[in-house]
Amino acid sequence: MFESSPFIIAELSGNHDQDFELAKAMIHAAAEAGVDAIKLQTYTADTMTLDVREGEFMVSESDSLWKGNNLYDLYAKASTPWEWHQPLFELAESLGLVAFSSPFDLTAVAFLETLNVPLYKIASFEMTDIPLIEAVAKTGKPIIMSTGMATKEEIDDAVATIRAIGDNPLTLLKCTSTYPAKIADSNLLTMADLAAHTGCPVGLSDHTKGLGVAVAATALGANVIEKHFVLDRQAGGVDAEFSMEPAEMKAMVEACRDAHASLGKVIYGGSDAEQAAKKYRRSIYLTKDLPAGTELTENHLQIIRPAFGLAPKHWPKVLGKTLSVDVKKGQPLAWDLLA
């Protein structure tokens, strides 16, 4: 489905602070960091919630980055203007990046289809929105779907919805839907179970700080890594607290590439590069000049480097053997020297 593995996505989210020039600068920086793709989010405050300023429409969790915000105002601040999508996509593509988005309602899907996006992302909070998933599946395009908070039954429902409509390539992401997420809550072992349960490739949507979890996920077989991106955390941005700056993203990309390259294949007996080093293993050598007819003892032999003599496993067999020829100190012991 993707040309590189892991396929690394820089999520711009609302960290552009609705500054178009900043959004463009973020895309340039993401490309320089070596990511494969940039992702936007396609919604408006009106497609996300109602303009109500009390009760459940207020962020009330004491540990939330957005505590005290009204949902409508928060989404209005974090949204990416729809008129930006095409120029931002074109900029990303000109820099060799894949550019796509997460739609949050049916109007967003219809809009993104006019831009001919190459794939879609379903966000964790939307993976129970079956009508949205149906609309995305009907495009026939590849889908990446985050599974944060989802039960197996909810995942089964979403996957079955897609499969009933078409054969869209589908990748499922392990995700912890807290912001920022604690490393100990990552539970990356779920990825293998998720892959076995659904038959889908898997990856990680990572909200932790730092690169360790992404690298670990790569080592466990993640095909996709998604990480939020910001130019400068100190300058703010709705998701800045758990987003990577350019130098950090570059380091993560390099570390994930190294982790993936290290997986290689199942191999025993050493790689091609190791073969030359085998001569520095130990073997049995003669330690004295000896005449033919000598019965060999531990005083005549030593297990040393290099490995041109008989292997050390033959030590018990050669003790007590008789030399059939004269030998020199430093000569590797061989069967044809023995009577």
Rank of each mutant, 00 (worst) to 15 (best):
M127Q: 12
D258P: 01
A184R: 06
Q302V: 11
M191T: 09
A76Q: 08
Q275H: 10
G34S: 03
E54L: 09
L115Q: 11
L301H: 13
A216F: 05
D258Q: 10
E254N: 11
N299Q: 14
V253K: 01
H228C: 09
I267A: 08
E134Y: 04
R257D: 06
T42I: 02
S101N: 07
D19W: 09
A277R: 04
D51M: 07
E83K: 13
D336N: 14
L231D: 06
D19M: 06
D105Q: 15
D326Q: 14
R282T: 12
K278C: 03
T176N: 14
Y43N: 05
T218N: 11
A158R: 00
K67P: 00
C256T: 08
K67V: 11
A251R: 05
A222V: 15
I155A: 08
I9S: 02
K288T: 11
E61V: 05
A214L: 01
G309T: 05
L263C: 09
A160P: 01
Q275N: 09
T151Y: 14
D272T: 12
H28I: 08
W84I: 08
G14R: 03
A110T: 14
H228M: 03
A110W: 02
E93Y: 15
P118F: 07
S62L: 12
A311R: 12
Y75L: 05
T208Q: 00
L333A: 08
K121R: 13
E83Y: 13
V224E: 07
L204D: 04
K77A: 14
A99D: 01
L91M: 10
A261P: 00
V52T: 12
E21Y: 07
K313G: 00
D258W: 13
L65H: 08
E32P: 00
S102V: 09
A29G: 10
L310G: 00
S186W: 04
P6Q: 11
K317S: 15
K279R: 08
L170R: 01
S146W: 02
V213I: 14
I144V: 14
T80K: 01
E248H: 03
M26G: 01
A276N: 06
V35Y: 02
V52I: 15
A158H: 05
M249T: 07
A150K: 07
E32F: 03
A160W: 04
G55Y: 04
A339P: 00
A181N: 05
I183K: 11
L173C: 11
E3D: 12
Y268N: 04
M145I: 09
E11L: 10
T151L: 09
F2C: 03
I8G: 02
Y75S: 03
K265I: 14
Y280A: 08
D46S: 14
H300R: 06
S186M: 09
G270Q: 13
K138H: 15
E154M: 13
D105T: 14
F111V: 01
S205G: 04
P201S: 13
L188Y: 05
G330E: 11
G293H: 08
I143E: 03
S271E: 15
